[in-house]
């Protein structure tokens, strides 16, 4: 079994007012273990205790009862912070510093030698795509840029555990994809990532395991793959086949033979994210206007691109009656409904 990086036992946080009266139970007896090398997602609606958990793990709050350990040390221990990188929800950095100065400052807090600090700062600025803005003060940065430099400061110490609070908050789709790729890259480097996010698709895309909190209580904990798997439904994908009533009837007959029922049948839709990224990528290759406003004779011209018939695919939308579609790889592919996530990871 992998080494545990984060461990909470009966971790409880009760907020009290000035007179010590209980105001809110933010977290109730949380038992959680996060293992080395995994991406762990904390999910839950507002006020469910996600951020409280992270703050307790970082020593920003003290538990009312229970214990929190990070790398086997109590959460309030300062030394453990040597191995942690933290990106807060909003990138709370000094806005009068520029990117280089910001990384230099946080590098100094880790007591990193000057030459290493300079080299690492330059690499990180390059990595987060701010090379051209390294001398601009953060006040002039957009929210996305601040999130990028925030991530860079979280990585300045080459941490073993990266804690990300709403990492894609404020990022555009390009930035979101970049952030998700980076999180996966961190995992591939052997780092442990703990993230919490409101954006379920982001969590689904990158997390190995998730915990769902509601009102301070842990509701569900487990692998994303297992939790999302619908064992009663079968997904079938095929390419180079026309969507005809005859095919539908044949498939229904085959399924009926094995005791199943055809519930949906049609072309899959891509995600909006994929569509957006593809258009941006194409625009980079071929600059210029591509959008044609609708005219009397050409109403459909407003559509910038036809529904994807190639590229990455997503599982059929429930509203879409078509259960299967063509696959870019050209080969038929049948899998459980949740397996599309692993397919995406492979692509990246």
């Amino acid at each position: 079994m992998a080494e545990s990086v984060v461990e909470t036992r009966n971790l409880t946080k009760v907020y009290r007012d000035f007179w010590g009266r209980r105001k809110k139970v933010a977290l109730n007896a949380l038992d959680l273990t996060i293992y080395r090398g995994e991406i762990f997602g904390l999910l839950g609606p507002n006020g469910s205790g996600k951020t409280t958990t992270i703050k307790l793990l970082l020593g920003l709050l003290f538990p009312t009862s229970g214990d929190a350990y990070v790398f086997g040390k109590p959460a309030v221990n300062v030394e453990k912070n040597e191995r942690i990188g933290y990106l807060p929800e909003e990138s709370y950095l000094y806005r009068f510093l520029n990117a280089e100065e910001t990384l230099d400052f946080y590098g100094r807090l880790f007591d990193i030698p000057p030459d290493v600090r300079r080299e690492r700062a330059a690499q990180l600025i390059e990595r987060v795509g701010l090379a051209n803005d390294r001398k601009r003060i953060l006040r002039e940065y957009s929210k996305g840029m601040r999130q990028r430099i925030g991530l860079a400061q979280a990585l300045i110490n080459d941490p073993e555990l990266v804690i990300l609070d709403e990492p894609t908050s404020g990022l555009d789709p390009l930035g979101t994809r970049w952030m998700k790729d980076l999180i996966l890259e961190l995992r591939d480097q052997g780092k442990t990532v703990l993230m919490c996010s409101h954006r379920l698709d982001d969590v689904q895309d990158v997390c190995d395991r998730i915990a769902i909190l509601y009102n301070g209580d842990l509701q569900t904990l487990g692998e994303v793959k297992t939790l999302l798997e619908d064992a009663n439904t079968l997904e079938l994908r095929a390419s180079n086949v026309k969507l005809t009533d005859e095919l539908k009837a044949d498939l229904a007959a085959v399924l009926q033979k094995y005791g199943g029922t055809l519930t949906s049948f049609g072309h899959p839709t891509t995600t909006l994210e994929d569509l957006f990224l593809r258009i941006v990528e194409e625009s980079k290759q071929r600059p210029g206007r591509r959008f044609l406003p609708p005219t009397e004779g050409n109403k459909s011209a407003a559509t910038p691109a036809a529904p994807a018939s190639s590229g990455s695919t997503n599982s059929p939308n429930n509203s879409n009656p078509a259960p299967a579609s063509a696959n870019a790889n050209g080969g038929a592919n049948a899998s459980h409904a949740s397996s599309n996530k692993s397919g995406k990871k492979k692509k990246r």
Binding site: L58, E82, P88, Y92, Y106, L109
Partner: peptide, 11 residues
Amino acid sequence: QTIHTIVTKPV
């Protein structure tokens, strides 16, 4: 909340 990024360092 700039202090959050400081106290979460080994400070």
